[in-house]
């Protein structure tokens, strides 16, 4: 049967022929496309092994335990302030100490202020001579 004998709308013979007629992609083109796929992949692929976090030294571990640099700075400030207050106590603090501890007005207070170890001079003697 020739094509002339076929019905005008009988396209299957053409489709059958065309299905096998598409030119094959050349091996060189396929290699080029594979290389392109690998090149793009390298741009976004995650590294196979995650980078390890650097190890902390002894000072770093201590800092981390205390809460980091901000916490340590607060501690240092508090320490310096304590030394400063201890070395040069403000007059107000002395007055408070005198009022609270060193002098008693009543016999009841005296009971709490008994010096159990008179050999040691540890009591506040700031009122002496006043």
């Amino acid at each position: 049967m020739t094509d002339h004998d076929r019905k005008p709308d009988d396209l299957d013979i053409y489709f059958d022929a065309a299905r096998s007629a598409a030119p094959a992609l050349s091996p060189a083109a396929l290699d080029r496309m594979t290389a392109q796929a690998l090149a793009v992949q390298k741009e976004f692929a995650a590294p196979p092994v995650a980078r390890r976090a650097p190890r902390r030294g002894l000072l770093g571990q201590l800092l981390a335990t205390l809460g980091g640099w901000p916490a340590v700075a607060g501690l240092a400030t508090a320490g310096v302030a304590g030394i400063w207050i201890g070395a040069t106590p403000p007059a107000m603090l002395i007055n408070i100490a005198v009022d609270v501890g060193a002098v008693s007005d009543t016999a009841e207070d005296d009971l709490y202020l008994v010096d159990t170890q008179p050999a040691y001079v540890l009591s506040l003697d700031l009122t002496e001579g006043s």
Binding site: A22, L30, A37, Q41
Partner: peptide, 21 residues
Amino acid sequence: YSAGDPAAARILTERLAPRVH
């Protein structure tokens, strides 16, 4: 492929490129 497997890149190219072409 998006996880970085080069074999997947090769297989996908060999499978899809001829059809697309």
